[in-house]
Amino acid sequence: MGALEGSLTFKTFYVNGEPPNNFHDPYMHALQSHFFEPLSPVGEEERSVGWVPAQDPIAEEFRRDQLFFNQYIVFAMRIDKWALPSAWVKAMLRKALAERMPELTPEEAQKQKEDGKLRPSAKLSKREKDKVKLEVVTDLKHKILPTMKVIDVVWDINESMVRFWSTSQSVCDEFVELFEATFGLTLDADSPFLMAKHLGIGEKDLETMVEADPWLPVFEDK
């Protein structure tokens, strides 16, 4: 959140390149084609990332009036992932494995009783154990919802600037990648150098900036 309400912590990016004339329809189509796909309890994906309307992150498609506000394009990046409670997984897996344990012959059962060691036939193979774990995890996924993170994006077309309401490096990297894949335009995160460049600082001064050493003050002891 952030563009419409809530916390105001964001990262600013500069957009390299211009949007096409009459960008509304092509950009709406581009966002729709990278729309968020929900995770399925039976699917193999542990995480899903895509665009959603900032005003309604559980909507199934974009509406034009949710996207375009004069010079702004407003949308959000949604990240869902399965976060299974490990204590539940462990407990359910232990129970499921015990139920699947093959029965021992009377001789094996007697020996096991005597020495306390599991007999080979009483063990499950790794493949069988993996199968049981998958069943347990799938069963658990049917009972819980994935965690959902929604991060707002505001693109100011006039200023060629994007504000993204997260400063996490990994999330920002993922955002940049998805943005480029969606719009075919690259992004550069704001920095002292790029801010100077966008302020119109001349080439010579930009060179001076690059050549400047960090300030290391030397004090005379008094």
């Binding site: 563009a3 419409l4 105001l8 912590t9 964001f10 990262k11 005003q55 400063t167 920095s191």
Partner: peptide, 21 residues
Amino acid sequence: RLEMSGLKIPALMTKAEDDKL
């Protein structure tokens, strides 16, 4: 990074959702 965080802005005067944005 010249990055702003925890920004608190002045109170909004408008009530309509679009105007708020």
